[in-house]
């Protein structure tokens, strides 16, 4: 099976974030890491390859720094990488990101494309689904398990409240992978060494520009919520106070 894994570099989860001057995004000087569900998507692709053979290709769209995501994936066992390299990919809307991916892989033939369920920074949960639409492929989201089946695959989707859904689908297909589907491996030191010799194709923005339309995403303002303190003494009989208190807990604090 030939599998493409779409991976994104996102700000580290516990990194202290600072807003940029215009208050529209965070400052660049934070630590970055692989988007968590994407790491699981890669792991799943590597496991599928170990079971059924084939090739694992990783792709990212982002500035030069995001190459680290690809290096790590190659060190863990991906065979080759594609880097859509441009700062303009930061903050690009989901449809254009998907269009850029589709354009970059137009000469490839994949059986499966994995994305993470969503990204830890913008959290669209859209890119994979739109990519499937652009390619005219079926897709399934929130995947917890993938088995090869006659003429295709059988996948397990996570629904709400502890329910799961099993779906049979043909190939090629796009799957968006849920965190926790498997146990992540570490890159090995040898793997890191070997990654140096694996192919990494760079694709400039200009090469895919024709496929793109204006970015429809615009962040107007980001701000840190103001902390406020407010003390209120409830008056009345015990019964009245209890009633007011439960109302407040239900409607204002919303913990009940």
């Amino acid at each position: 099976m030939k599998i493409l894994v779409c991976m994104k570099q996102v700000p580290q989860k516990d990194a202290p974030l600072k807003l940029n001057e215009s208050g529209t995004w965070i400052r660049e000087d934070v630590s970055y890491e692989v988007n968590e569900p994407d790491a699981y998507a890669l792991e799943e692709a590597l496991r599928q390859k170990e079971k059924h053979g084939g090739e694992v290709v990783v792709i990212t769209a982002g500035p030069a720094r995001s190459q680290q995501v690809l290096r790590e994936a190659l060190a863990k066992g991906a065979d080759r990488a594609i880097h859509l390299e441009d700062p303009a990919f930061v903050g690009l809307d989901a449809i254009n990101t998907a269009r850029a991916f589709a354009a970059a892989i137009k000469d490839e033939k994949f059986d499966l494309i994995f994305t993470g369920l969503q990204s830890d920074d913008y959290g669209y949960a859209q890119t994979g689904v739109i990519l499937a639409e652009l390619l005219g492929w079926p897709h399934a989201t929130i995947i917890m398990q993938i088995e090869k089946a006659d003429g295709g695959i059988r996948v397990k989707r996570e629904l709400e409240a502890g329910y799961f859904q099993f779906v049979d689908m043909p190939l090629p297909a796009v799957l968006t992978i849920q965190s926790g589907i498997n146990k992540l491996r570490y890159a090995t030191l040898i793997g890191i060494k070997q990654a140096k010799n694996k192919p990494l194709r760079k694709v400039a923005l200009a090469e895919v520009q024709d496929a793109l339309s204006p970015n429809l995403l615009k962040l107007e303002r980001l701000y840190v919520p103001q902390k406020t303190k407010n003390t209120e003494v409830l008056q009345g009989s015990a019964g009245e106070i209890a009633k007011k208190l439960t109302e407040k807990l239900r409607n204002e604090v919303r913990v009940l």
Binding site: D14, S31, Q67, Q68, R71, E72, A75, Y186, A187, L189, I192, A195, K196
Partner: peptide, 26 residues
Amino acid sequence: RGVDFIEFDSLLSDDERLVRDTARKF
């Protein structure tokens, strides 16, 4: 959280950082 006061990381190559981060995570 790691300790880096003077952008020490900028003195390391991508691979060096990856080695460090892998060991740290392990």
